[in-house]
Amino acid sequence: MQKTIRWVTMAVIFVVALAPILPQFVWSFSHRWLFPALLPTEWSTEPWDYVLSPTSRVGEGFANSLSIAVVVSLLSILVGLPAARALALHQFRGKVVIEWLLMVPIIVPGIVATMGIHQVFIRLHLTDSFIGVCLVHLIPCIPYMVLVMSSVFANYGTELEDTARTLGAGPLAVFRFVTLPGIFSGLLVATMFTFLISWGQYITTVLIGGGTIITLPMVLFPFISGTNYSNAAAISLIFVAPAILVLILTSRQLGRESAVMGGFGKL
């Protein structure tokens, strides 16, 4: 019975998540692929040659996207973890207001906030800079970090930490031996979220980066609006690769504890 469920789950995951990538794969090797044909009539590795050449700026975009996403993830942890803990475990004045403020970036389109922030960043000389882009990416990322982690903290409670303290563990030892292992899998999921949100940012990067900071979506979008599907397909495959990689890596970690993510761990 369990085996059947596992196979059905795998099948659904494949159809929903992986099947849409297959045509992209075919596109990226096609030279001529017109409507009635089931497969391209002419094959070519040209798109990949282009993508991997320096003129495409895919390499630069990839490096920028990756380093921005990593920095944003780290900053999100730095800011979001204490905030999540405070919101989950403490009662204080204005808590509801802060919870609402955290929801705002999810509700309000990023471009609205970014327009306003743009003005401020110009004055602070943060536009057209790597750190400026990282900071603006924090706006959509932090809410996810805080929301996921506050439920993790609320679920974990404080009893274990309190127990550890009475047993002679100082604050650092409590964090290292009790808190961190307890929240680790949740933190992994939250970091995965923030990484992918930053990875997929377009408008915010364009506005604040001002064309100086080239990320992968910025390289990709002109091809999508243009007509060269083959090049777009090749770039989009590179674009989606980290997402799948992150998913597989983290699900392997989570597979031990979480039944839902367990399916991915076997991939």
């Binding site: 309190d162 127990t163 303290r165 009475t166 047993l167 002679g168």
Partner: peptide, 9 residues
């Protein structure tokens, strides 16, 4: 502080 009191809960 708690960790130095020797009162275990």
């Amino acid at each position: 502080p708690t960790e130095k009191r020797g009162a275990v809960m």
